[in-house]
Design a protein around this nucleic acid. Sequence first.
RNA 1: GCCCCUAUCGUCUAGCGGCUAGGACAGCGGCUUCUCAAGCCGUUAACCGGGGUUCGAUUCCCCGUGGGGGCACCA
Length: 478
Amino acid sequence: MPWLAPRLAALIVAMSQVRVRFAPSPTGFFHIGSARTALFNWLYARHTGGTFILRIEDTDQARDSAEFLRLIYDSLSWLGLNWDEGPNPHGEGERGDYGPYRQSQRGAIYQRYLQQLQDAGRAYKKDGAIWFKQLGDRYTVFDEHRQKEVEKVKRGPVVINDLIRGRVERAEDEDFVIVRSDGHPVFHFVNVVDDIEMKVSHIIRGEDHLSNTSKHVCLYEGFGVTPPAFAHIPLILKSPEMGQGKMSKRDKGALVEEYQQRFFLPPALVNYLSLLGWNPGDDREKMTLDEIVRLFDLPGVNQSNAKFDGKKLAHMNMLYLLELPSEKFVASAKEYFAGQPTGATVLANETYFADVMMLAQPKIKSIDELAAYTGYFFTDEFLIDEKVRAKVMGKGEPKQRLVELIAALPTLDFSDDGAIEAGIKTLAESKSLGFGDYQAVARLAVSGTNAGPSITSIFRLLGKERTLSRLARFAQAS
RNA sequence: GCCCCUAUCGUCUAGCGGCUAGGACAGCGGCUUCUCAAGCCGUUAACCGGGGUUCGAUUCCCCGUGGGGGCACCA
């Protein structure tokens, strides 16, 4: 029947419409693990042309806080993980047809679903709480672990068809609480109700939820609803230096906020995170976001947990820093220094600041190294690295070289790096020496260290006068 | 204790019955060089153990062991 085709096609599109959600609770700092879960959901939505929903699970009045809620919006926005439905990022209002998107405002919906369960005889009251009722013959056993009698129900195992793990069977043979005696519905209940109501098609979450999922499947069945597809992604574990177990909010480097404050580049963090538990199937590592979106798919996600490696993240950040347009680099650097104690001084001269920053860009791994790396450009009161001093002063005749350099400096052409280099080389040649014989001691005198941009650039930016006074001061002191 | 997931270099991983087990980070060595980075070249380093299945197992199955998670009127 040809006339059916368009309707059928539309139906299939509607049925295959991917809707995923990220559902954090504002009870703590936003950490790397949450960011990765959000990212995988976001990637899957973007890959499939589906919808990414942000739902706030703020039902724990004791622990919820407005700051943590703010942090969720900020962190997701900073990472670039925009959501199609959910509260607006600035906190006022929301968008989407399936709201409210904060559980604290969905009480009426939960009541309706609870009623449905009660009407169906699948919920009952006991000890002031409301329990979900499993179907089947009952018997009691003594649970050694919990040290009490528990009532069990004879029923087959719950089957979870997981897109990443395959078929998982789990016994779920006890009734469980769905509404606490204080009247608040528990996580399992509201989570399932919301996912049904919001028409979530794929639940992508951490593997730590895998054992909850059997409860959830029971609830779907209780509501007479086919469960969505599940995809339990591996967890992020501590790196060997951090210890054992899954990464927790207390671990160093575990908070998204930390990378934000350190001015890491969001695309670098996103790229790194995408590679934790997933890969494009070949050797590609540094990928554009578009590329990741195009290549990402659930069956490609690994089944085993991954350990967090700050060094590799730092390397990724460097890669992105290297290719950042210099105006953007300077802009970020400016923002960074605005929050530094030396900020006012450093930012006083915009052109000079930009020149220094552009010198530093190809040399650093992250923007927060900038203060230490460029300190001597903005103050004469920099520290001399004693180890470097010992090394430099112990080789050849640095004092003599310094004296020669000071003598030659007034007539040295400072117009550009090439001129400075040529000048020093001429001096070196006149003494039958090399550029390197002057470089090390000059660098030490002028910057206090052995790491930095080319000495000619340092001279040029410092200017002849300041260069001379630093060289002279150092010569006098040593 | 019970249940579930999982297992390739130190770390992230490729491999989907036959490979000199590949790449990346880290490490090490070298080149380059004005220092330090970067870059380039090279190098160290892995299939957890035992049984099967098979002509043949890193790959499939089982059992150990290791790692992880979960067993609440938390989410």
